[in-house]
Amino acid sequence: MSFLEVENLTLRIARGPRILRAVSLGVDQGEVRGLVGESGAGKSMIGKAILGTLPRAIQVVSGRISLDGTDLQTLPARERRRRIGAQVALIPQDPLTALNPVRRVGPQITNRLVDILGWDRSRAEARARELLDEVHIPDPDRVMRSYPHELSGGMRQRILIASAFAAEPKLIIADEPTTALDVTVQKQILRLIKEMQDRHNTALLFVTHDLGVVSKICQSLTVLYAGKVIEDTDTRSFFAAPGHPYSQALLHATPKYTDPEDSLTPVPQHVIDAVEAEVTDFDKGLGA
């Protein structure tokens, strides 16, 4: 049994369409799983559902999410919140908006340790210094006293990574953590996340639309289309021979994996039609 188990999770917009269709996936300790799909495929919603930050307009129709064998739904709200806070952490997409502009960086790293886990302040600060060192930030004391606007985007993402690992979480959810960054910084950040994950041996769910990134750091991946799992496999066999026609087309639409002689091919219409038909069949099967 994996640390994170998502089983048959179905979400819908209140009085609207489904956005996830019976999604199941698991991430084990030390495993890096890519969650791949086009924008709008619902991949970020899975992260939000795990973290308990779904927008109010979205309803959970069915399914369960468990951490370390405990079904989160069975816990009282306060206990659930604290359990998630202690065991799961998020590396957000946009480092420019994910730090509170009116608070210094230091407390934003230590607040989970002090307020939720009850550490004393000096211990939490020592831990933050250690983490900033781990993410290769020189002069941690100065950085902890800074305000976010005084730091660069890459620097802020390093801080958010340090903050995510602060409480030694069992699971990290990285929601497209490099999309908002410069290409040159992207690589460093990606390497850093992988390095931190190795060192702390955490489970990592890496949400991305970029198969190139998946090939570099993930051992396994889940491909999502219109909220439905299209393929769930390990990275090696996926890149050797993707099982689903949509996956094949997706792979061909990714620059790195296409022969440079070949022009990039968008996902062909007949593949899209076929996968749309699968989704429709699924909905019919539920009688919607």
């Binding site: 973290l51 308990g52 930050t53 306060r78 919140r81 604290r82 998630i84 806070g85 202690a86 799961v88 952490a89 998020l90 957000p92 997409q93 946009d94 908006t97 994910a98 730090l99 509170n100 502009p101 009116v102 608070r103 607040n111 989970r112 307020d115 939720i116 958010l160």
Partner: peptide, 25 residues
């Protein structure tokens, strides 16, 4: 905003998210 969402994932209650993260801004 994102930093408010991030605070929620850390385990803060809705009330403390409002007073600690949203209010100062």
């Amino acid at each position: 905003l994102d930093y408010v969402t991030l605070a929620r994932t850390k385990g803060y209650s809705e009330a403390s998210v409002i007073t600690r993260e949203a209010l100062p801004n």
